[in-house]
Structures are given as structure tokens and as C-alpha cells.
Amino acid sequence: MTIKSSIRIPKLIEQESITGYFQRTSSVNNYEKANLIYSLAGIKKNVKAGSFIEEDLILLANFFQKGPVKA
């Protein structure tokens, strides 16, 4: 079993920010910091320090769904 397949992914709350969603997902999975999710998704930088770029959002979308997202 991979880490991705064992992660619990909560439903998105209406009007929830993307960083808030990752914080909540981290909490549900008993992760100390949300940065672990970014690392698991393949994002190397700390996205809280800057803005997301399109490639980052695609990596996150692919992480949280079964099928790949195309740009």
C-alpha cells in the first residue's frame, strides 16, 4: 500500500481556501504539518510562502483524484 492510497481525503467544504483544505486534510490524517501533502503531491517548494502556479495545481489535483488532470 502506498502513502497516497492510504491517505484519508475529506470532502471539500464550500468556500474553503485551498490552504485551509490541506490543513484540514493533514489534521484528519494526523500529519504534523500540511507540507507533507505538498511533498507527497510532488511539489518541492513551500506553497504557503508564495502563490501556486498552474503546474502546482495540476500536481495537487492529480494527487487528490484517481484520473490525471490535463493542462
Rank of each mutant, 00 (worst) to 15 (best):
T2K: 09
I3N: 03
I3P: 07
K4F: 12
K4E: 15
S5P: 03
S6K: 11
S6A: 10
I7H: 04
I7W: 06
I7P: 10
R8L: 08
P10A: 05
K11T: 15
L12H: 15
L12K: 14
I13P: 12
E14Y: 09
E14A: 11
Q15L: 12
E16I: 06
E16A: 05
E16G: 07
S17Y: 04
I18R: 05
Y21G: 01
F22G: 04
Q23A: 00
R24P: 03
T25R: 06
T25G: 07
S26V: 00
S27C: 01
S27I: 10
V28S: 01
V28Q: 11
N29R: 04
N29M: 07
N30H: 12
N30L: 08
A34G: 11
A34R: 09
A34C: 05
L36C: 02
Y38I: 07
Y38W: 13
S39I: 04
S39F: 10
S39W: 05
L40C: 10
L40G: 02
A41H: 03
A41N: 09
G42N: 03
K45E: 04
N46A: 13
N46T: 06
V47T: 12
V47Q: 10
V47N: 05
V47S: 05
V47I: 06
K48H: 13
A49S: 07
A49C: 10
S51A: 15
S51M: 09
F52W: 14
F52P: 13
I53M: 04
E55S: 12
E55L: 04
D56N: 02
L57P: 04
L57N: 12
L57E: 11
I58A: 09
L59Y: 01
A61S: 07
N62H: 04
F63P: 01
F63N: 00
F63A: 01
Q65T: 10
Q65V: 00
Q65C: 03
G67R: 03
G67S: 13
G67P: 01
P68R: 03
P68W: 00
P68V: 06
V69P: 04
A71M: 12
